[in-house]
Amino acid sequence: MSKPLLSIIVIAYDMQRQALNTLVSLSPDYQEGVSADDYEVIVVENRSQRNMDASAIAALPGNFRYFLRDEPGVSPAAAINFGFSQACGAFIGLMIDGARMVTPGVVRYALMAFRATEDAMVVVPGYNLGESEQQFHLSCGYTEEKEQALLSEIDWPNDGYRLFDISCLSGANPNGVFHPFMECNCLFMSADIFRDIGQADERFDLPGGGSLNLYLYRKTAIHPCTEHFLLAGEGSFHQIHGGVTTSADDRREEKLQEHREQLCRLLGYPFSAPSVEPILLGKMRSSAMPFLKRSVERGIERLARFAQRGADPYVDDTQKSKHRKSDT
């Protein structure tokens, strides 16, 4: 068999049920318009008390490779770099949090973007399952059991776009797709660009990687070569699993402040969401329309604020254009 064009790296830790849902959503029986030969999925799990069932992964259709690692630290950074070392594709997808299911067009449109340009950065908007951000779930009585009931009710393996019906926007992009995102939990780029940004910086050593995801997204988005493609009609949907920043925790704000301080220290400057204007790619399914409506309304408000100040709403794009011109 020839090498796949795309390698999707999924990192898991202590999320057996949720990660298997994610892998099902990445299988060629679920993804539309692609074949098993187009891509591979590399699953890297750091050992916990609830490891995944290797036989269940092996039974999935498609090209799945599973690695169980004994990780001495508490960050996924080393696991990401290990997964990248195993990747065969010229392009990669990163899912640092393996508890994120995706809609059925994600792989098809990611491959379409790479066929348009090898410098594509493909961004899938993030959502949370449930009616509110997940750090508030426990106070609202939302549990894993209720989430499983919701998923069963919509029969998601047979219509993945119904995930929109039981979800809300992620706290990382609460204003929708026409505002700059802080992060992306389903991100695609060329293997060369991932190498060029230094891969996953293993100095992000806090539990869950701290703000590694924000760092990787910003470094990729402001890379002078990347072309930003946004799959506005697709989504990655976070399942409740007791994550470091998505749990009800009295120390949550303290932890987030620690994350912010490490992020700014390793970036070398204060963090801001990268302001790059996306190329919209893919179909807009009816289930996603309510989120598109909110996105348009908030996007118009944002542009009006910038116009009133005489400011550049996509300053990082402007800087990238200047860099390209100076190179020529």
Rank of each mutant, 00 (worst) to 15 (best):
E153Q: 13
I154Y: 01
I154W: 04
D155F: 00
D155R: 08
W156S: 07
W156N: 07
W156T: 02
P157F: 01
N158I: 06
D159E: 14
G160E: 02
Y161C: 03
Y161G: 02
Y161P: 01
R162G: 04
L163H: 06
F164C: 07
F164D: 04
D165K: 14
D165T: 15
I166S: 03
I166A: 03
S167F: 04
L169D: 01
S170N: 15
S170A: 12
G171A: 11
A172L: 12
N175Y: 13
G176A: 08
V177Q: 14
V177H: 10
V177C: 12
F178H: 08
H179K: 06
F181D: 13
F181S: 13
M182P: 00
C184T: 01
C184E: 00
C184W: 02
N185L: 12
N185T: 00
N185V: 00
L187M: 15
L187H: 02
L187P: 00
F188M: 09
F188T: 04
F188K: 08
M189P: 00
M189C: 13
A191C: 09
A191F: 06
D192F: 03
I193T: 15
I193M: 13
F194H: 10
F194A: 10
D196E: 14
D196C: 06
D196Q: 15
D196N: 13
D196T: 08
I197E: 01
I197H: 03
I197F: 00
A200T: 00
D201N: 15
E202R: 12
E202C: 06
R203G: 03
F204E: 09
D205N: 15
D205Q: 07
L206D: 09
L206V: 08
L206E: 09
L206R: 11
L206W: 03
L206Y: 05
G209Y: 05
G209I: 04
G210S: 09
G210H: 05
S211M: 12
S211H: 07
L212T: 10
L212R: 03
N213T: 09
L214V: 06
Y215S: 06
Y215A: 12
L216V: 12
L216C: 06
L216Q: 08
Y217N: 11
Y217S: 08
Y217G: 07
R218D: 05
R218W: 05
R218K: 14
K219A: 10
K219E: 09
T220F: 02
I222H: 05
I222G: 06
H223K: 04
P224Q: 05
P224E: 11
C225K: 14
T226A: 03
E227T: 10
E227C: 06
E227S: 12
H228D: 07
H228R: 15
H228F: 12
F229T: 07
F229Q: 09
L230W: 04
L230K: 05
L230R: 12
L231S: 03
L231R: 02
A232Q: 11
A232V: 08
E234D: 15
G235K: 03
S236M: 10
S236Q: 09
F237A: 11
F237N: 08
H238K: 06
Q239P: 14
I240H: 09
I240P: 01
H241W: 12
G242N: 10
G243M: 02
